[in-house]
Amino acid sequence: MMKILLVDDEKRIIEVLEAYLEREGYEIHTADNGIDALKKVKTVSPDLMILDLMLPDISGEEVCRLVRKDSDVPILMLTAKSSEDARINGIVMGADDYVTKPFSPREVVVRVQAILRRVKKTEKVDKFEFNGGQLAIDIDKKEVTVNGQFINLTPIEYKLLTNMALNPGRVYSRMDLLEKIQDEGMFYEGYERSVDTHIKNLRKKIELDSRQPAFILTVFGMGYKFGGILDAANTSV
């Protein structure tokens, strides 16, 4: 049974979503504040987290940022903020999707199911091909090829590429990427710009034209995202 951590300080929302999600067969755990939510991410190990942005102690954005330091658990944000900037900020922080309040509980259930289907599909895939086979990543062998030619990536470059490729469209700030690769011994607070050098080198190796990249895209003022299109026919599920 898949476990969902539901984080909201509004009792009525907890009760309604819990009822709907339990009806679909999910095991529900709840928290009404950010500190408790962070603890339960570690003790419960949920398969998905539904996170309200307006919490009484620390913001949902901060909870999301802290969770993302150690976990790739999918996060569905609940927000009363309907502005484009607020939604973009949530995605940049690491959310996988968002629902704006007021919402339909059925919509939340559908979005939860969609996210978990994507995660389940990704977990079964051991080789990814993008843009008609132009770029291929073999997770088991830790190999990358471009147009069938093996590309020699450094451990840092490989981590940057796989983290972004497995989450296409998600915007990563430089600090996000540093945190993903810090176990390679290059994480130093204040040196976010060093990511730019690694991205530049990675582009030279995997892009047909590094000045007009198709895979590692710059999101001005925010960071980077993966722009490749997954070849569905070449995924092993």
Rank of each mutant, 00 (worst) to 15 (best):
V119Y: 11
A136F: 03
G148H: 07
Y191L: 14
Q149G: 05
Q113V: 11
Y158Q: 06
D196E: 12
D196K: 12
D183N: 14
Q134L: 05
R106P: 01
N167G: 01
E192T: 14
G185F: 09
Q113F: 06
Y172N: 04
Y158N: 10
V195R: 04
D209P: 00
D183P: 12
G185I: 15
V146A: 06
K121N: 10
R117S: 06
K141W: 00
L161V: 08
I181C: 13
A165V: 08
R117Q: 14
N163R: 07
E129N: 04
R203H: 06
V108N: 05
E189G: 01
E129P: 00
G148V: 03
N147Y: 10
V144S: 02
E157R: 05
F150I: 10
R193W: 02
T145Y: 04
G148N: 10
A136L: 05
I139W: 07
V171Y: 07
R174A: 06
T162Y: 07
Y158P: 13
K205F: 03
L166G: 01
R111G: 03
E129H: 01
G185H: 15
G169Q: 09
Q182T: 04
T162D: 08
S194Y: 11
K141Q: 12
S210T: 00
L177V: 10
S210P: 01
E123S: 15
Q182A: 09
E207M: 06
N201Q: 13
I139E: 11
E179N: 14
S194V: 12
I206E: 02
I151W: 02
K141Y: 07
L177P: 03
D209Y: 00
L166A: 02
E189Y: 15
M186A: 13
I199W: 06
G185D: 06
F187I: 10
R170K: 15
K204T: 02
K204Q: 10
R117H: 13
R193K: 13
L177F: 08
F128I: 14
K124V: 03
A165E: 10
K180H: 05
N152P: 00
Y158E: 11
G148Y: 09
G133A: 05
T197F: 13
I151E: 03
R170D: 02
G190H: 05
P155G: 05
N163K: 12
V146F: 08
M175C: 00
R193S: 03
L177G: 02
M186F: 11
V146N: 01
T145L: 07
V119Q: 13
G132T: 04
L202F: 01
I137H: 00
T197H: 08
R118N: 14
R111T: 12
L161E: 07
R117Y: 11
L135M: 08
G133V: 08
A165I: 05
K142S: 13
K204F: 00
E179S: 13
V108S: 10
L177H: 09
L177Q: 09
E184R: 04
S210H: 09
N152C: 09
T197P: 00
G133S: 03
I137N: 06
R170N: 04
R118W: 00
L116D: 11
E179D: 15
K127E: 14
F130L: 12
Y188M: 12
M175Y: 09
N163Y: 11
Y191K: 15
D209W: 00
V108Q: 11
L178Q: 13
L116S: 07
E123D: 08
V110E: 15
G133D: 04
G148C: 03
T145S: 12
E179H: 14
I151P: 00
N152V: 14
F187M: 12
